[in-house]
Design a binder for these strands. Structure first.
Lengths: 206, 206
DNA sequence: CCTACCGATCGGTAGG
DNA sequence: CCTACCGATCGGTAGG
């Protein structure tokens, strides 16, 4: 049975990961010091090193245990719909719900790419893979009503849809008041499904 | 007339910006030291501070003077085409040509967002604005054959197309040999134009 | 533009 | 899990 020591230790670990998560998103990894993490977790540096052997290990914990995929993929797996259109629409809605409108979403990925050169990406993918495969299996069963598009392009552009939305949202937020740049995810999904072109240019009957 | 001193000074400045650009892309901003920059520019730290008053100013120079928009926007401005389809196709081709297949493309943006909280983004936008407006003016003149899509969604999803492509490319590269994830930008453009759905489900005549 | 240096802060550890 | 500390490295500067 778990004793009091182990329980306190686990609570400390959780506080460290939460504190580090906050600070990394706000400042990046290298700009965040062990002392800042310790302070926000209400510990001293020594206390932090009692839970993690090195700063990098805190990153690995944050990256794997606080990554949005943990909430998004299970949500995506629930997507339903008779037709492809319904299925994708439902998936996009669930994705948005799982992700929230939060712009911080992509930051863990950015930090991993910039400050760790994607060193832990394979680890992440190995954990995501089973769920992703399952979801695309679902989609492929509805393939009949799709245009001829390679599965790779289909998969990448589906996830890319959200990158596209969230990243341009960051930019739109940066120019703030000039606005005129607000768009909903629904519009992005609509374009993904139907494209931007008019289906057939109706020749106006004279 | 420019004397030898000023010329040498300018050459040093350029070497510093180039060196910093390389190092920032490879390691991020905070993980790159002034000594590394100085060494790669074949100077000492003192020499670097003769050109830039602070490390941050080197970032500003790199961000504004080495940003891909400098090559991309002028290239985009040359886009031609009678129809929207031709115009977007040509624009995408020029964009790809201006950008190259290089995955490092998005890194300046990532660093700015993560390590500077987007502090210099407005400055960047103010420099990009005139060109961007001009390009969308071009596109809008061909609006007749577009579906009803808000201009904001149209603009954002056009640029988002490239984010989508390059970011999922980073991921695809991370899983390397499992591949099966390779797709061309052409496929992304095709989806942007026509969507993923079959135009009208042809009821197989019995 | 270099030499030589400053105070501050970093990641990490010993000992309890 | 804290106190107290280590060597190393950081951004930046004075003086020439």
């Amino acid at each position: 049975m778990p004793n009091k020591h182990a329980q306190k230790s686990e609570a400390s670990r959780a506080r460290i990961v939460d504190a580090a998560h906050d600070l990394f998103l706000a400042q990046g990894y290298h700009a965040t010091s062990m002392r800042q993490i310790a302070a926000q977790a209400e510990l001293t540096t020594g206390g932090v090193y009692a839970q993690f052997p090195a700063k990098q290990e805190i990153w690995v914990a944050v990256f794997l245990e606080r990554h949005p995929y943990l909430t998004v993929l299970p949500e995506l797996a629930k997507a339903r719909g008779e037709t492809v259109e319904e299925f994708i629409g439902d998936a996009a809605r669930r994705m948005l719900q799982g992700l929230g409108e939060d712009v911080d979403l992509m930051k863990l990925m950015f930090i991993e790419v910039i400050e760790f050169q994607g060193r832990h990406m394979e680890l992440l993918f190995s954990r995501m893979a089973p769920n992703v495969v399952a979801i695309f299996g679902q989609l492929m069963q509805r393939r009949g009503s799709l245009r001829h598009v390679s599965p790779a392009a289909l998969a990448r552009s589906f996830f890319g849809l959200f990158f596209s939305y969230y990243i341009t949202q960051i930019f739109a937020a940066s120019v703030a008041d000039q606005s005129g740049l607000s768009a909903t995810l629904d519009e992005f999904v609509d374009i993904y499904l139907h494209g931007i072109l008019a289906p057939t240019p109706p020749p106006e009957a004279a």
